[in-house]
């Protein structure tokens, strides 16, 4: 038996909304330690990795008697989650050898309980091991700022060059019709931690990435006030959105390289 009671259905809604356009079907791997989801996009350029820990406060109850994999169409899951109120408590339930995943939405005042079942899918996805890496540079910044930068620069070109150096981080685009550059300096004077821009730098990095994917990742902006960008030269960037009281959602994006 698997049963996970999440206090805020809005968190699950936001997660699925941020994934469903790049990742059509995905396996939720459930174990006693929590729920993970790993999926590559169809072009093998982007990968998402979700971790929701069972011992975090976001789960009111969590039970997983044996490891199970729940193969779900994320478009369908998004439709089901739209049936939940944002303040509803959502319970996910499945048997040990499941064909069906059940969603139960309890309204805050417990006056309305709704239940939906969806058929599970057999999804043949290759599980990848993501090596532990010490990144040359980790940028922490407000998530809405990163979203704005990606959105602004995508109007002029297809790829952004991210340049991390000791003063801060530069985002540059050069397209056929024009170019743009946004410089972010490290902030030390800002009161709120979530408004700060910090750059942990071991080595400077200059690397280009496709804006199409970065813009897609920023659909996760509402999950977190901050986003962490981890970069090393000639390796995939990690775009991490911490999820309070649950874990995190990470996106990996392969770099653009010189021809």
């Amino acid at each position: 038996m698997f049963e996970a009671k999440m206090l805020q259905s809005s968190v699950l809604k936001k997660i699925i909304e941020s994934l469903k356009d790049l990742f059509a079907d995905a396996n939720f791997d459930c174990s006693s330690s929590g729920i993970t989801l790993q999926d590559m996009d169809s072009s093998h350029v982007a990968l998402c990795y979700l971790k929701l820990r069972s011992d975090e406060e976001g789960f009111e109850d969590y039970r997983c008697d044996r490891n199970i994999t729940l193969g779900v169409n994320l478009g369908l899951m998004s439709k089901i989650l739209k049936c939940a109120g944002n303040d509803d408590v959502v319970t996910l339930r499945a048997e040990d050898e499941p064909n069906i995943l059940t969603f139960i939405f309890d309204s805050k005042n417990s006056e309305r309980v709704s239940k939906y079942d969806i058929k599970l899918m057999e999804i043949d996805s290759e599980l990848l091991g993501i090596p532990d890496t010490d990144y040359s540079c980790v940028v922490k910044m407000p998530s809405h700022e990163f979203q704005r930068i990606c959105s602004n620069l995508s109007q002029l070109g297809d790829s952004v060059t991210i340049d991390c150096h000791k003063e801060g981080v530069d985002f540059k685009v050069a397209g056929e019709q024009g170019s743009g550059a946004i410089k972010l300096k490290q902030t030390t004077s800002v009161d709120k931690e979530e408004d700060q821009v910090t750059v942990q730098l071991n080595e400077p990095v200059t690397q280009s990435f496709a804006l199409k994917f970065l813009c897609a990742f920023t659909k996760a902006t509402s999950l977190s006030d901050t986003v962490n960008l981890s970069l090393t030269q000639d390796t995939p960037v990690v775009v991490e959105y911490p999820i309070a009281q649950h874990g995190y959602l990470r996106f990996y994006l392969a770099p653009k390289i010189e021809e």
Binding site: H44, G129, T235, A254, K256, I257, E258
Partner: peptide, 14 residues
């Protein structure tokens, strides 16, 4: 011009 790399070479297949 830059080419889009694939993720495959960066990760280990389990």
């Amino acid at each position: 011009n830059k080419l889009q790399a694939s993720l495959n070479p960066f990760f280990v297949h389990k």
